[in-house]
């Protein structure tokens, strides 16, 4: 299975939300990274065929997805960024409703819903109304609905938003297990989530796909550009104004600065290992 995104573009009037994005997605986990307004959500919506592109196309094994209709949507699991719910539905009712929309026969839907409620740890509150749920619990209901039809293509727009660290780890394990023979594409602003589970990272900026590669490949590009420098607290403020400081931590009387710079910022600065977060910050430095 292969999803090809071919010169996909979306304009909103004069604003270009997605600008000629092309890539090929094969089974695996893809992390979509980018600042707010980079075009991640628009790209995901077009990938799910719920938003018509201005130009370009999305192909599944050579077939244009917009012409595939239900055959394509059958393979799709989608969690939007801001999703609603019917407040008077219980978690179980909501999932059964979504299962009906996904064309899952009633008896199988019941079994699947039970299974998924256990998977996302909501089995004890299955009969409670969603409106009484916390943000994290609602998010888990959203994740469960995306998985109802065993999707071959799973599109998750900021799925970890609102999840506590324990829930995030549980989610990461669930999804990385899922991505073995499926295409999973997720966007998140939590760089560590992508670093932990993504096979490949897609970096978007101002509607354009600026980089794509595995985490080691991408971090290698930023190698030799991340420095640690120990300074006094008084000097720290000066350095923050002068250089792009990715992190700052106190160690005894000193402040350790993590500086992003193409050149060694000071004689005492030590070059250190690059993380995806460094690359992200470097890409969006301005």
């Amino acid at each position: 299975m292969e999803v090809s995104i071919d010169r996909l573009t979306k304009h909103y009037g004069r604003k270009i939300a997605v600008d000629c994005v092309s890539t090929v997605l094969k089974p695996g986990m893809y992390g979509l990274l980018g600042e707010n307004g980079a075009g991640k959500t628009t790209l995901m919506r077009m990938l799910c065929a719920i938003l018509e592109p201005t130009s370009g196309e999305v192909l599944l094994d050579g077939r244009e997805v917009s012409s595939m209709g239900a055959d394509y949507r059958d393979l799709l699991g989608y969690l939007p960024q801001d999703f609603g719910y019917y407040p008077n539905d219980t978690a179980e009712e909501f999932l059964l409703y979504m299962a009906a929309l996904k064309g899952i026969p009633r008896n199988r839907a019941k079994k699947r819903v039970k299974e998924l409620l256990e998977t996302v740890g909501l089995q004890d509150v299955a009969a409670k109304k969603i409106k009484s749920f916390s943000g994290g619990m609602k998010q888990r209901v959203g994740i469960a609905q995306a998985l109802l039809n065993h999707p071959k293509i799973l599109v998750l727009d900021e799925p970890t938003a609102g999840l506590d660290p324990k829930e995030r780890v549980r989610f990461r394990n669930l999804i990385s297990d899922y991505a073995k023979d499926r295409i999973v594409i997720l966007s998140t602003y939590i760089v560590s989530d992508i670093e932990a589970i993504a096979d490949e990272v897609l970096l978007m900026r101002k509607g354009k796909l600026v980089s794509q590669g595995t985490v080691p490949e991408l971090t290698k590009r930023a190698e030799g550009k991340v420095w640690e420098l120990a300074v006094s607290p008084a000097e720290a403020a000066r350095w923050q104004k002068k250089e792009a400081v990715a992190n700052l931590r106190h160690e005894g009387d000193q402040v350790i600065l993590r500086i992003l710079s193409d050149d060694r910022p000071a004689e005492e600065a030590v070059c250190c290992e690059t993380t995806l977060e460094d690359l992200y910050l470097q890409s969006f430095r301005e």
């Binding site: 919506r45 799910c48 065929a49 719920i50 209709g69 239900a70 949507r73 059958d74 799709l76 989608y78 969690l79 939007p80 801001d82 999703f83 609603g84 719910y85 019917y86 407040p87 979504m98 009906a100 929309l101 996904k102 064309g103 959203g142 609905q145 039809n149 599109v155």
Partner: peptide, 22 residues
């Protein structure tokens, strides 16, 4: 218009049924 009112349209549109069939 329930789905639009409760912001469910996007999620429902991506299902097999699609918004039109619903």
């Amino acid at each position: 218009f329930r789905s639009q009112f409760y912001n469910m349209g996007e999620m429902e549109a991506a299902t097999r049924a699609s918004e039109v069939e619903i």
